[in-house]
């Protein structure tokens, strides 16, 4: 019970203090809007294209939203030492870090609202398999958040968190089959695609939106869950090693 109180209050505090700030809300709207507009214009401007852009824009919105927020907020709290307050609380590291990541997962998932709303306005989404789309969104948000946590533990400064995040995020846009199939990537680079969790998330989204998945949904689901667990456990191990000196 006491762990649950701590968990819930950490999530609530993070949402209030960081995620519901006007700059983050506007960022969550403008960023997907810009991506959608950019690809819509680039692909010739057919309204039906929106359906094929939606998985990519959705995935990239979650990726950037979730990784940025957690990496920056945790690094910021480490820097001003308020994170110490959490480490001093009688709450297990697992609960503590799950609480810290839950807010970011939710924030990442909510970033999907803007592209979905645009698509809903422009095209017919009645064929979308929402029972696949929603879990895919949360799994991408979770892997992106745990990836952000992994970076936050590795760096000391907020600017380092951003730099390292971008080092991984931008290649993912090209390697993970967000806007063009992995088959179009040079064969030499293709193995790298399958090492990145976003590939499986994007494939699930393609499957959910227009039936264009290349991998089995079950395989993608299992691989994403495995990435989540591995990234979380490695981050916990790193926290114990680096933050409890």
């Amino acid at each position: 019970m006491s762990s649950w109180i701590a968990f819930w209050n950490i999530v609530r505090k993070d949402i209030k203090a960081y995620y519901l700030k006007p700059p983050n809300i506007t960022w969550g709207l403008i960023f997907p809007l810009a991506w959608t507009a950019m690809f819509f214009i680039r692909t010739g401007g057919e309204v039906e294209d929106v359906l094929y852009l939606l998985p990519g824009v959705t995935a990239v919105s979650i990726l950037f939203g979730a990784t940025s927020m957690l990496a920056v907020t945790v690094t910021f709290e480490k820097k001003n030492r308020s994170f110490e307050r959490l480490l001093l609380a009688p709450v297990s590291f697992q609960t503590l870090m799950l609480a810290k990541t839950s807010g970011a997962i939710l924030f990442g998932a909510l970033n999907v609202l803007a592209p979905v709303m645009i698509a809903l306005f422009l095209t017919d989404l009645s064929a979308v398999a929402w029972h696949v789309f929603v879990p895919a969104v949360f799994l991408i948000a979770a892997t992106s958040t745990f990836f952000g946590l992994f970076i936050a533990v590795a760096v000391n400064e907020v600017f380092e968190a951003q730099t390292y995040s971008n080092f991984f995020r931008f290649p993912m846009i090209f390697l993970c089959g967000l806007f063009f199939p992995i088959e179009q990537i040079p064969p030499l680079l293709r193995p790298f695609s399958y090492l990145l969790p976003l590939t499986y998330g994007a494939d699930m989204l393609h499957g959910a939106v227009h039936g264009g998945n290349t991998l089995s949904l079950t395989v993608s689901f299992i691989v994403l869950c495995a990435f989540c667990t591995a990234l979380f456990l490695v981050s916990l191990w790193n926290i114990r090693r680096k933050w409890i000196m």
């Binding site: 006491s2 109180i5 701590a6 819930w8 209050n9 950490i10 505090k13 609380a89």
Partner: peptide
Amino acid sequence: ENLCFCAALYGMP
């Protein structure tokens, strides 16, 4: 809010 948050970390209702 700070005090309430710190109390919550110790599981206080």
